[in-house]
């Protein structure tokens, strides 16, 4: 049976704020990704690349999600926490890819 949610005494509520920041960012990413799909469709260009980027980012971030809050609570309690390196790189990298794909779509559809 899964252990109960860990508790911490940080009045700044950092684990919760950090978790919410991840959720908000992932939601915004999905919304913008859907917009990019729309752009790809109206430009008549194959949108699979966009879909792949969106799915990869969302899946990898969400998959880490379950452990993240628990891990940051433990980190607050023990004083140090490991930075979420893989999730940061995935979101940053996915973001850069989405931007490059968008530029290609805009420039390619011109004229």
């Amino acid at each position: 049976m899964r252990s109960p949610a860990p508790v911490h005494d940080d009045p700044g509520l950092q684990p919760e704020r950090t978790q919410l920041a991840w959720v908000r960012t992932t939601l915004s990413f999905m919304a913008v990704g859907l917009l990019a799909l729309r752009l790809g469709v109206t430009a008549g260009i194959d949108v699979s690349a966009i879909i792949l980027v969106i799915v990869a980012v969302v899946v990898l971030v969400v998959a880490n999600d379950a452990r993240r809050h628990r891990r940051s609570v433990h980190g607050i309690n023990q004083g140090v926490v490991e930075p979420a390196t893989s999730a940061v790189l995935v979101v940053g990298g996915g973001m850069l890819l989405l931007e490059l794909i968008t530029l290609v779509l805009i420039v390619g559809a011109r004229g």
Partner: peptide, 28 residues
């Protein structure tokens, strides 16, 4: 470093990403 600083750094990065997302969304 202190866990709070690592988490704060993470949140700052995510805030910048959301700013970029707003601009990207506008351009799209």
């Amino acid at each position: 470093p202190d866990a709070r600083f690592t988490l704060a750094n993470e949140r700052t990065f995510l805030a910048w990403i959301r700013t970029g997302l707003a601009l990207l969304g506008g351009g799209i």
